[in-house]
Design a protein around this nucleic acid. Structure first.
Lengths: 127, 127
DNA sequence: CAGCATCCCCGCAGATACTG
DNA sequence: CAGTATCTGCGGGGATGCTG
């Protein structure tokens, strides 16, 4: 069993794990998606996304910037204006992310139904 | 700006957020991927994935089961044998996940390069 | 407006030991 | 072998206040 090769994505210390851990964050995908239509300001993202704190947003943006997925543009104005936009590299991640949203749109209800249907066994799973 | 509609995926309290938060977990995608080729035992997953603790694996499996993405099969044998497999619903998530791995395979190096290139500004981002 | 620093708490996740 | 229970720590992440 396990037809996975040693260099197979995802398992063990393969390159794909990097990406997963990059995406496997509450906000990463959401932020990237928020930038998918062009440059957006910090404050706009806050409202657009909804539910994210300034701290988490900045943190996420910094990480994405460090990973080369987005670019930061600070304009020397008052009041300050800072825009973020996808890099070409970052833009390539939008498609995969969009697939996730498509999946959600299609199967979201099914997941919710499963959740409602209640846990198979209340407790005591041994044996 | 923001050509996103109110019901648009990802932003605010849209359905896609459910999926993101489902996937936005260190192990969810990895476990699903591990099951993508057929039923796998608990212990096999541990070794296959590498780095996950029994506790986290069980926890992840339970959640996926609750969400209707995987199914649990416990065989009344000694020693006990338990297999997990994707449900049809869960199987539909493999494609999106695979896209992520494809992306990683293609762009993983670019991300690592960006990381090495160092942070744009060492410190003091204000202004 | 954007961002950093600080404080603080809750929960994730590892380690360990026990049961069926 | 599979799973649970308990303890513990570390860090994620919110709230707040200050700076440019």
């Amino acid at each position: 069993m396990s037809g996975f090769g040693p260099g197979d994505p995802f398992l063990a210390d393969c390159p794909a794990r990097l990406t997963v851990e990059l995406i496997a964050d509450k906000w990463t995908a959401v932020v990237l998606y928020g930038l998918s239509e062009g440059p957006v300001r910090h404050g706009e993202l806050i409202q657009l996304i909804g539910g994210i704190s300034r701290k988490m947003l900045t943190q996420t943006l910094r990480r994405l910037e460090a990973h080369g997925l987005i670019r930061r543009h600070a304009y020397a104005e008052v009041p300050p204006r800072v825009e973020y936009e996808l890099t070409p590299l970052g833009a390539t991640l939008i498609d995969p992310i969009r697939m996730l949203t498509e999946w959600a749109r299609t199967n979201g209800d099914a997941v919710l139904d499963a959740l409602d249907s209640g846990p198979p066994e209340p407790v005591a799973r041994n044996g």
